[in-house]
Design a protein around this nucleic acid. Structure first.
Lengths: 252, 252
DNA sequence: AAGTGGTCTAGACCACTAC
DNA sequence: TAGTGGTCTAGACCACTTA
């Protein structure tokens, strides 16, 4: 197996950056899949011809990027989307009092369509290429307060059907990972005010024309590859969008 | 000078966490102020009785938290808020096409008041304690599209006046740092839809009752100490709020 | 007991900045 | 040239997990 021998520097400048890129390449090539363990640090250090310390520095960054997860005594794993881990890193709607809860998702519609020029540009695919588009209605604490219009390219989700989507056992991003080996590792989001249209107001529990929160998201896999476009609408009467936090002081 | 000798473990569990906490304590005690250089790694390693590698690991985390900044050949500095550095980490309103620009800020009003119970709870001060409250109107690309209602406790900003606030030479958070040694290192933000009231609509260029974006922020200094509460209103006709990004892939 | 990651060390050498 | 942070090494020892 070609291990991207790192004899020639030139690319990354430093050894550990080269190692990091080589590991990202291995991840993108599905050599290690979501939830799987990767080889031990000792083995990887030998494979890439660096010391343990250098290899660890590469992994440090991949862990900081939420791409890998370390477990002492067990090994290092490809980060996996799970209900109880990282879910609220991507689901950022909470009740006004701060209470976080998992949404109950209902699939409202599902269809295959051609990408508009706009959508194609966001997904970095050809205009007119096939995409799957579906609509979710979400309930929090039993209240219907949110919808999601989601589009993914057929090329990266071959064989996706309404049935398999509806019957997925876990979260959507976990489903992407397990079935299509698509790892969502980051998103860009923009938030603005919009007005509920006739079709949506019933799903959101608001009157037609009522102001709602609109969140437009692009989700990325490794190497900033866009894999999903999502427009969410939220009735913010009792729920809010959580913006950026920061500062990770340790608890004393 | 007491250097918080680290002979007794117990607290952090690991040496570098202890060193990190000791450095945070030194920062909180204003031993090193915003923009200043801290002692060299070699000196700090001696001071805390650890090896360079361990000392570096502590600094690594403080750098990751945007509390310190390293400059090869120069030294390590206490991160400083500047127009051209980190400004858009806290100012998250951009034009719909993605264009980022610095806001032109006008101080609309300034007064001293007593903290309501609600505000006092957010700022972790006594109900009825004095706070300064002021209102900014912001223009982007020459358009008035945003307001900020800002409250800070008098106890942490002694002697703040309208004149000195108005005449500050740089950004607000830089001003906090230089004049009051208050270092904003993180924020919590919640976003929802609100309606423009009579007093505000003129400042935002919308009709009374028009839907606007409301952002409620708490800004924190070291050890999660709240130092500012801010409610921003945005006309999102042409401007949007930038939510969380993630994934820091290197450019190849 | 064996294997994993986590911490810590002591030092070499490089790259950058100032004087 | 001297001082800074940046990289890389080789290894010891600890803590955790599984068997």
């Amino acid at each position: 197996m070609n291990t991207l021998t790192i004899g020639t520097p030139a690319i990354g400048g430093t050894r550990y950056k080269e190692v990091k890129q080589a590991m990202l390449a291995a991840l993108a090539a599905h050599e290690w899949k979501g939830g799987e363990t990767i080889p031990s640090e000792k083995r990887l250090a030998e494979r890439f011809g660096v010391s343990i310390g250098t290899l660890r520095k590469a992994i440090d960054e991949l862990v900081a990027d939420n791409i890998l997860v370390r477990h002492q005594g067990l090994g290092t794993f490809v980060a996996q989307h799970q209900r109880d881990r990282h879910f609220f890193r991507f689901f950022r709607v909470v009740r006004a009092d701060g209470d976080k809860t998992y949404p109950a998702v209902s699939l409202v519609s599902f269809k295959k369509a051609k990408a508009t020029r706009e959508l194609a540009a966001l997904l970095n695919i050809e205009t007119g290429a096939r995409v799957f588009t579906f609509l979710n209605q979400l309930a929090l604490h039993g209240e219907h307060v949110m919808t999601e219009h989601i589009s993914v390219p057929e090329s990266r989700f071959p064989g996706l059907t309404e049935a398999v989507l509806r019957d997925r056992p876990s979260t959507l991003y976990n489903f992407y990972q397990d079935v299509f080996h698509i790892n969502v590792v980051g998103t860009d989001e923009r938030v603005r005010v919009a007005l509920a249209d006739e079709a949506e107001c019933a799903l959101l529990g608001v009157a037609p024309g009522a102001p709602i929160l609109e969140i437009r998201r692009i989700a990325y896999s490794y190497h900033q590859m866009p894999v999903e476009v999502r427009i969410s609408h939220v009735n913010t009467e009792h729920y809010e969008y959580v913006g950026t936090s920061a500062s990770h002081d340790e608890p004393l």
